[in-house]
Amino acid sequence: MLINSLYFVALMLLPVIIHIPFPGKLISKVLRKMDMSGTLKKAAVPVVPDQSDAVKSSFHRKMTETRNMRSFPRKGVFLMAGIILLSGTSCIDDIELKLDPEQYSRLVVQGSVTDADSAQTVILTRTIPYDRHEPNPPATGAMVTIEVDGTSYLLEEVSPGYYESRDFVGQVGSTYILNILYEDETYTATSTMQPGFELDSIGFKKFTMGWPADMPHYEILIYGQDPPEPDDFFLFKHAINGEWADTLYKWSIYTDIFNNGEYLEGESIAIIESRADSLEVQVMAMSIGEDYAWFINDAIFNYMPNMFFSPPKANVKGNLSNGAFGFFLATSVHFSEKRMLYRVNYE
């Protein structure tokens, strides 16, 4: 009897012994990592409307980020998987892989036409085997032209792989055709410039949910009128102290497919973390088409370290013909005023 009771007590304790110490630190670390890659932040906060928002529109506003909505189940499950696995005995190791070198090198295009007062640029590079840890080589000696309304402009190679033209400025509503002749292959892409988004102002809000908890987090909010055309997509980028956050997972995409023509009053477009006393913040709004919105979406998914439940890996397809990677985008660009963010205001 006594022995049985002892057994019982020991058994009750065993699980405790087995499960402790709990690697809480590890969890925080990994969550932060997920956060960095855009997973968690989006999961936790699909979009955070200003509290003062009209209740009526808050739901639609949440729906606006198609990208977030459609991916949020995955993120939710991610989070759960993270918690389960990290509290267990899982581990992550570096491994050596032997990857077959690519059969052939593909052309990569990053091209844009804007209505801002700057050069129209097309950057051409080539793919390299995945395990070559070096910059992609430029594709030099290509003939690059952009055609609009029957006129064709030749872009000049100002540095290796870097083609530009200052002969024209983009216009909303025009359709641009990119033609590239490179090593006897031709590649084309077409893009129509959509109406831009006029930024009236930007604002900030303290974000309470970030990790680590003692790091100040802020949301950047935008104010402005959505243009009357339906099915607009906009890409917002932000700059801190003059430096544009130009990595794609820091960008934010907005669509008005559920609430066209509304005035955006404090739409959150980014969450930043900083211990600085003051920051200078600026936001850029670019009009994009739905195809580019999906391109960015797919690119983020394929870039992110996908530990669990990953969808089948597949190439991210842009709008170029003939198997070239990348995208050619005609975009209307608007900048906000620069505004200072003082930490003391949010403490």
């Binding site: 892989l97 990857l99 990569v108 590079t125 793919t127 995945y130 794609l248 960015i296 870039y303 890996k313």
Partner: peptide
């Protein structure tokens, strides 16, 4: 599915399959 090639876009390295 593992990548065979790499390319860069938006400041990150994209896999090519």
């Amino acid at each position: 599915t593992l990548p065979t090639g790499r390319w860069e876009y938006g400041g990150v390295i994209m896999p090519g399959y």
